[in-house]
Amino acid sequence: MSLARTESPLIRRILIGIALFYLILFIFMPLFIVFSTALEKGVSYYFNSLKDPDTIASIQLTLITALIAVPLNLVFGVAASWAIAKFDFRGKNILLTLIDVPLSVSPVISGLIFVLLFGLQGIFGPWLRDHGWRIIFTPSAIILATIFVTFPMVARELIPVMKAQGNDEEEAAITLGANGWKTFWYITLPNIKWGLLYGVILCNARAMGEFGAVSVVSGHIQGFTNTLPLQIEMLYNDYSFTAAFAAASLLAFLALFTLVIKSLVEYRFRAELKAVRKGAH
């Protein structure tokens, strides 16, 4: 490498040192604390604390919530990125901004709006109650709030990927007589599958980990409307610090798993991109 493109080894080491120090302080240490506290009373205590029936119920609720919220946002993400990446239309920036809104709205506000919609003091609450329906403070409200919070995750990952792929291949397929669904299935999907996978995994991690919004609409009924993050808060407030961190370690594992998938996706994606570029030249 020519001298122009890099710094002297000393400066390089200092910069790497600063970067690592900062990351140790803000990323490695919190990660370390979660696992070390979870295991401070031993492995058997760790597994026993995860077997608590309320904790198991909270894991179930968290899984169900993600199983409903993620596929819905997946379908939306594909439709939205198809419209936004493949076509040029007026109002695109407004639509993009609207899609991003849930990411930057305070989670507390995300919960509040569902209380205002479905609470007994809200707009639809009394009507729903009179017809035997309840949404707020049930798993349904948790699922709704989760859908809201994780709503942009798939779309945000897919839009840049689809844009990068361009329209040429799809247009060729259409000209050759393939219908729209077939084109999507055989041309677009293989191209975006890695981005799609990462979007889904990230969406899933956020869906399982949401705290603020879910906390506002949950009602905190043990074994019924406590999701895993809420259960962690409860255990933490219950003097069961080790159990709280044991439950927290599950979500930390999920976060790490998400990162592994992400690295894998990027690796595959880069390899494919290279292959595409080589083919083009």
Binding site: I27, P107, G209, F211, I232, E233, L251
Partner: peptide
């Protein structure tokens, strides 16, 4: 720009705060 041992792991972990539930981050 640089390469150093463990760079891949460091690179992957940058996203950790994004994937970690906020309540877990709070207590940690």
């Amino acid at each position: 720009r640089y390469s150093f041992p463990g760079k891949k792991i460091v690179d992957a972990l940058i996203d950790f705060p994004f994937a970690l539930p906020t309540a877990v981050a709070g207590i940690a």
